[in-house]
C-alpha cells in the first residue's frame, strides 16, 4: 500500500513540476502574480448559442435617472454590501456577484419582465465587467443593458435620488450575496 501511494505521489509531483515548467516557458501561461479572479462568476456560452444580441451601453447619470420610474427598468448595484447599505440608487437590487444559483435565479426572475437593466458600481469599469457578464447570461434580444458612467459617485454628485440601509424585503435570503430592494423608484 505504501509503495503504491509513494508511486502515485511521485506521478502527481512529476506532473506538477512538468506543469510549472511548461507554464513558465509559455508566453500565454498563467501569471500567478497578475492573475485576478473574476469579479463575477463567468459562464461560457454554450456551443451554437447566439452571439450577444447588443453591446452594453453607457448612460450618463441623468439619463439613467430618467428611467428610474419606468416599471420595465431594473437597476443593479454591484458594489460591496457595506457600500450598498450606506447608500444606493433607490429601487436598486444588490448584485455584487451572482454567488449562488438562488441569487442568480432571483436576479434573472426580476429581469424577466423588464426591458432595461441598468448596472452601476463605484465607477464605470466595475459595473462594465458585471454588465458584460450579465449580458452573457441574459441573452434576450429585447433586453437593453447599460452602465451608469462614473458610477455611484457621479450619481450622487448629480444630486439624483438615493436611499440607504440594507434591504428590508429581500427576495433572496440574507445568507446569499444578492439582496433585493423592491421599493418604488424615485422615492428618497
Amino acid at each position: 500500500m505504501v509503495p503504491l501511494i509513494t508511486r502515485a505521489l511521485c506521478l502527481l509531483g512529476a506532473g506538477a513540476l512538468l506543469g510549472l515548467a511548461v507554464n513558465g516557458v509559455r508566453s500565454d501561461g498563467v501569471r500567478f502574480a497578475r492573475f485576478a479572479p473574476p469579479s463575477v462568476c463567468t459562464m461560457t456560452p454554450a456551443r451554437g448559442e447566439a452571439p450577444d444580441p447588443a453591446p452594453v451601453e453607457a448612460l450618463a447619470p441623468p439619463d439613467a435617472a430618467a428611467l428610474c420610474g419606468d416599471p420595465s427598468t431594473l437597476i443593479a448595484d454591484v458594489r460591496p454590501a457595506a457600500d450598498f447599505a450606506q447608500g444606493h440608487v433607490t429601487g436598486a437590487i444588490h448584485l455584487p456577484c451572482t454567488a449562488t444559483g438562488e441569487a442568480a435565479s432571483a436576479a434573472v426572475d426580476l429581469v424577466a419582465g423588464r426591458q432595461t437593466l441598468i448596472v452601476y458600481g463605484d465607477g464605470t469599469d466595475d459595473a462594465q465587467r458585471v454588465a458584460d457578464e450579465l449580458r452573457q447570461r441574459m441573452r434576450r434580444r429585447d433586453l437593453r443593458i447599460a452602465v451608469v458612467s462614473g458610477g455611484f459617485g457621479a450619481w450622487s454628485q448629480a444630486g439624483l435620488a438615493c436611499s440607504s440601509g440594507p434591504c428590508l424585503h429581500c427576495a433572496v435570503p440574507p445568507a446569499v450575496s444578492a439582496s433585493v430592494t423592491p421599493g418604488p423608484a424615485g422615492t428618497p
Binding site: L11, L12, G15, A16, G19, L20, V22, G29
Partner: peptide, 11 residues
C-alpha cells in the same frame, strides 16, 4: 490551473 493539465497528461 498551471499544474493540473500536466498532471492529467502524466497520469
Amino acid at each position: 490551473a498551471a499544474i493540473l493539465p500536466a498532471i492529467e497528461v502524466v497520469v
